[in-house]
Simulated assay, not measured.
Amino acid sequence: MRKLLNTLFVTNEDAYLSLKGETVIVEVGKIKVGQFPLINFEEIVCFSYRGASPQLLGKCAERGIGVSFFSPYGKFLFRVIDNENGNVLLRKTQYHVSDNEDQSVLIVKNFIVGKIYNCKWLLDRTMRDHELRIDLDKLKKAKEILSERVKQALNIGSLDEIRGVEGEAAQVYFSCFDELILNQKESFHFQGRNRRPPLDNVNALLSFGYSLLTNECFNALQMVGLDPYVGFLHRDRPGRKSLALDLMEELRPVLVDRFVLTLINNRQIKEDDFVLNEGGAVTFTESGRKLFLTEWQNHKKEVITHPYLKEKVQWGIVPYIQALLLARYIRGDLDGYPPFLWR
């Protein structure tokens, strides 16, 4: 359980929530593990199959406290709110911002600053920990360029310029991504990003991880009441989860890229976990996909200190925190959207 941004996160999949007086009780089995005054919360987020009592849901609806339910794997199930506490005003503001390039830029440049900064962090960590196993000069040069792109992104005034800076930064970052692969080089070599379909083992890992992260961001945005299909950087297209794609940008390097490199470098995933299909597409074997998903769930349970909130959280909650922060900025509760800058 974690109290953040006036939100109670319940991450134990065996937890059951009930009402006692003016408090919410959290039980695992028949053991009470938490009790919190309802007056402290605007939202309750539960990653549990056991759910909550009708009395608690009724009291929350009466108080205007939203209650969102997800599966333990992060799939959005449903949300309970009262009749008057819908998200129409938040979404109307979101649509207005999306239609206004100047206002969109204020959010997008923070997404991209976060992305480039976190790419730079991943290079920096490899340089620090594995100096003798990499092309140090190549990574130093890439890091310097990324530092300059962060400064550029902070001072850009149009979406096209931001896209240009992001594209250049991505090219520099991925040009040295192969240096970050320290083991199993014969099976996991990276010569550039490719997708739809991925043509090598590393791209298959990245694409699958990005898909999972997109879905987590989509679910998080639904929880806070934002429209996941209306973005600020990724523009409207039928069926495209544009805002989810926006939100995931800053989290790609630290949540997916780092995870993929760990699987490879720790030899947790191997060559025989992939299949080369006719036409050149690379996909997982059934056992390979299961391994990835199992380790992904374990990774999401790891506890970190959120760089903005300065509080302990699980990795899996980070997309939900960022979605909450984004919603608060759009509502006018924050002066700017704080990107996730990993340290």
Rank of each mutant, 00 (worst) to 15 (best):
I304F: 13
L106V: 10
S68Q: 08
T285N: 06
V45S: 02
G66A: 15
K138L: 13
S18C: 04
G58D: 14
T305Y: 06
F174T: 01
R328P: 10
F232Y: 07
M1G: 11
F292N: 03
H96I: 09
I264W: 02
C60T: 08
A220V: 06
V165G: 04
I65P: 15
T93M: 14
D124A: 07
L57M: 13
R258H: 12
Q55V: 07
Y229H: 14
E13L: 07
L89C: 03
D14H: 14
L233I: 09
V108A: 10
I156M: 14
P197V: 04
S68N: 12
P338R: 01
R237E: 02
E179F: 10
L136E: 11
E144I: 11
F9P: 08
G157H: 13
P72M: 00
E22L: 12
E302F: 14
V303C: 06
V260D: 01
S187E: 05
Q184V: 04
R235Q: 13
L326G: 02
N12E: 11
F292D: 01
I112W: 03
L19H: 06
C60W: 05
V318P: 11
S147I: 08
T294R: 15
K151N: 10
I25T: 12
L17S: 00
P339A: 02
R163G: 10
R128K: 15
Y210D: 00
W296I: 08
F111T: 00
V113M: 07
N87D: 13
V172I: 08
L123K: 10
F177K: 03
S71M: 01
D160H: 14
E22R: 14
L8R: 07
L139F: 00
G114D: 06
M127S: 07
P307N: 01
I81K: 13
Y16K: 02
D99Q: 12
L123Q: 04
K312S: 09
G225I: 02
